[in-house]
Write a protein that binds this DNA or RNA. Sequence first.
DNA 1: CGTTAGTTTTACCAGTTGGTCAAATTAATT
DNA 2: AATTAATTTGACCAACTGGTAAAACTAACG
Lengths: 200, 200
Amino acid sequence: MKKTETRIQKKNHSAIKAAGLKVFAQFGFRGSTLDQIATESGLSKPNILYYFSSKEAIYEALLAQLLTDWLQPVRDIDPAGDPVEEILKYAKHKLKMSRLYPRESRLYANEIIQGAPRIKSVLTGELRDVVATLAQLIKNWSEAGLIRVIDPYHLIFSIWAMTQHYADFDVQVQAVLGDGDHFDDAEQYLEDMLRRMLTV
Amino acid sequence: MKKTETRIQKKNHSAIKAAGLKVFAQFGFRGSTLDQIATESGLSKPNILYYFSSKEAIYEALLAQLLTDWLQPVRDIDPAGDPVEEILKYAKHKLKMSRLYPRESRLYANEIIQGAPRIKSVLTGELRDVVATLAQLIKNWSEAGLIRVIDPYHLIFSIWAMTQHYADFDVQVQAVLGDGDHFDDAEQYLEDMLRRMLTV
DNA sequence: CGTTAGTTTTACCAGTTGGTCAAATTAATT
DNA sequence: AATTAATTTGACCAACTGGTAAAACTAACG
């Protein structure tokens, strides 16, 4: 029912969300404070609470946005497309998200590690369904002989794990490989891996 | 220099560490409170501070233990062994750690996601060196024609990512696959993946 | 320009936080 | 049993926490 958002509302809403993303991604929900978000956004604490009813409201707005952004690419997989290329397209998209939006990835990782208290219903609902559909599609592809027979769920997990790793464990990757962007190498490795796993 | 630990000291030190592990793994350092650890351990808050000088001291004791436990298996890889079997052995060991000690994995994940403020020096020091040695070994194996030519670093990252995923993202795995133990399937998938990636 | 709606600030509060301290209790040693 | 060392507790504190209330300010609009 949000009709008219004023210019100032639009600016501050997004400033708060940007600041919240930064802070929540680093410290998790409980480890983050409104003061941090206030400082980061350049607004005062009461001013923040003028735009969002609570600390939790900011967090949940971020999570909600995140979940829709993450589920869409799974739905975009084309059952009529070439199986290997479709899965590769999805995996590369996921990796690109890790490169461009590492904080979103970390925010999500924090939430999941801590037991997903606020989105468990989404996980067992929407996420589960979307993944089940994809798994069925992969299974069909397998049975049609278009890709190798493979456990679709663990295939999906391996894509998630590897792509998110480069965002969530970025500090560790940088420590081991040295500073710089390693996403191109990661993409090459990932593509190689998936082709080997999928082609008969 | 810790010489004689009394019976009570031994008991309480480990009770506090066990409680700290549980709490820190779920909420991260900043999101955890001494009161939670006190309740969880059955000791009073001042009593906890009688055994550990601060909240941070508990956290760091846990991290230190963790790091040594995690680096050892990398060192245990036998350069004279069969390459594929050695890498498989390591990967399976890592997966078993995720199954048996998921909280340790989550504690570490929390620390890394939050930028590893207290162990960055270990990452760029000990971890980096150990991984560099392993990477060199893998490269040698490649050049000797014992395994396929492969990026050793991203191979290692993929093992870490996939094994830790089942501990750190357990809630999500359970949501998608249903409750139960999925580590046996995960191991099978992992072994299949690694054999395909490593054999010529 | 005046009015109203929208925005920001100042001052504040009750609950929680990590941590201290001295007194009380318990265990170990002589 | 007496003494000493180790352990536990209760009372407390200053800093910080999420959040509130009302006043002050600013923008939009006729």
